[in-house]
Nucleic acid binder design. Structure first.
Lengths: 194, 194
DNA sequence: AGAGTAAACGGACCGCAGTCCGTTTATATT
DNA sequence: AATATAAACGGACTGCGGTCCGTTTACTCT
């Protein structure tokens, strides 16, 4: 039988694994800044062209590196326990959503930052579109009526922009707790709470 | 008498003018993308080192290019006629603020975008700090009480992020009017409106 | 097994932002 | 006018992300 999606060639698969392994090693040693595409190629024992064919760009690589944890986040939102998962009130889920995003951004720091430098800008990152949908869905479920629910959701998720969060945390000493509280205040107000 | 701030040397002043003129010419011809630091140096008839000593970085140059229009915006906010200037209700001013920012971003497009790539990130841009203060002041004047007014104001201005606005306009065909309406809805809700 | 093919490979190459440092020049001082 | 000096100058240089294209290699078909 002929597979609709051509199977990946074995050498390609092997090299992809090598590259991801090498990338994690380099980052573990010297942070995201220590990961240059040349160094990665050398460390993984492949040519530079291979790196770019595999991931398209530096940002694409970062995105791939974050793929697992992003999927895990989405899974917790869709199937996990409250308050983030289904079960709680929409407003509680919204509040939890922000708190979890903040924690996520803190944990992965520079990786998230650099993943945002994609060719079309950081709003093309697939995960961003997902968050927007999540927030929009929660707003609707929470009874928030708007003529532009997508834009309203986007306005809210903009407050969770990784660059903004990390800037506040690193350069202004704002704690995660204060950010979470501010997010809570924002969504509560928008949802029409007291 | 000895000036506290050493006067700028005449050749330096002359070169600064030349560079700004050359930069505007290059941008007029081929957009911001056509402005490379090498080309600018050549077009202005100075060495590359001079360009960087003057503006620090590409983003710094863009910032300088935007300086006048940013100052004009701030002046209209501080001294201009309502609805943006003092005189109207805080909520009306807030709404006008968003509409004007959207128009501004549309007008200067790529320039604003590239000015955001500063070393410390786009939240170090001086104008951004100003907007935050403006919004914070209007929120306070509008009777919005918050334990973290600065963070709340920042959450709102995040919705006016140039990259977000331009992405929506250029890649999703969202009109200025819809963006302005969405901003209006956001601030009205946050200000506790119906 | 052998031939054919599409895909993967690798590394020289490009243009860019940004740095460095030996040289030149405007200005203040006498 | 001559001198001193701090500042400005210029362009070669570095390291980076990203591209290109001739070569090699894994799979398929007979």
């Amino acid at each position: 039988m002929t597979p609709v999606t051509a199977a990946e060639r074995s050498d390609a698969a092997r090299n992809r694994e090598r590259l991801l392994l090498a990338a994690r090693e380099l980052i573990e040693q010297g942070g995201a800044a220590a990961l240059t595409m040349d160094r990665l190629a050398e460390h993984a024992g492949v040519g530079k062209g291979t790196v770019f064919r595999r991931f398209g760009s530096r940002a694409g690589l970062m995105l791939t590196l974050l793929d697992d944890s992003e999927a895990a986040f989405q899974a917790r939102f869709l199937f996990g326990p409250p308050p983030l998962g289904p079960g709680g009130t929409p407003l509680d889920r919204l509040i939890a959503f922000g708190a979890e995003r903040i924690a996520y951004v803190v944990e992965y720091g520079d990786l998230v930052l650099e993943a945002g430098n994609a060719s079309r800008g950081r709003f093309e990152v697939p995960a961003v579109a997902l968050w927007n949908q999540d927030v929009e869905m929660l707003l609707r479920a929470g009874g928030v009526e708007s003529r532009e629910p997508g834009l309203l959701a986007g306005s809210l998720t903009a407050a969770l922009d990784p660059e903004r969060l990390l800037h506040l945390i690193r350069d202004h000493g704002v704690t995660r707790e204060r950010l979470a509280a501010s997010w809570c205040e924002l969504v509560t107000r928008v949802a029409g709470g007291a």
